[in-house]
Amino acid sequence: MILELLKGMATTFKHIFRKPVTVSYPEERLPLAPRYRGLHMFVVNDDGMERCVGCELCAIACPADAIYIEPAENTEQERHSRGERYARLYKIHMLRCIFCGYCEEACPEEAIVMGKQYELASYNRGDFVYGKERLMTPLKAALKQRPDLHPDW
């Protein structure tokens, strides 16, 4: 019986010297999967042009109807994108969004891409409607999160 007890205790004591499996989150973070889909980025090129041409394909592809776009025409005086149109309003409801990445897949201009940021919790439901200003990311910052993007689209 003593032998069995010792055997059991040996298993217990072995665990003391094992490396702990816990990742203490706010201090250390797990490496994300290479294709992890986090917060969206509305890519702005180096010359200040938005990539989005206001085609609304992402809004159509969105299964949760979380994207709202209001396109407007580019004029000679006011040019926001290289296409004919640009997104005057671009809003994503982050609570509705299920981070499926269909918007990125539908986008012909690589203008809306999923980043790696995931800490999005908040106290207010109103905080979750992300406008264009909050989503806009310069290309350089976007490339840091997503090295697979095309820098010269």
């Binding site: 989150y25 706010p26 973070r29 797990l30 982050m94 609570l95 969004c97 299920i98 981070f99 499926c100 995931y118 800490e119 999005l120 919790a121 908040s122 106290y123 207010n124 439901r125 979750f128």
Partner: peptide, 16 residues
């Protein structure tokens, strides 16, 4: 009190 978005949220998001 707190809304946590995500579908589903990562455990980190819930801890946040």
């Amino acid at each position: 009190d707190v809304y946590v978005p995500g579908c589903p949220p990562r455990p980190e998001q819930l801890i946040h």
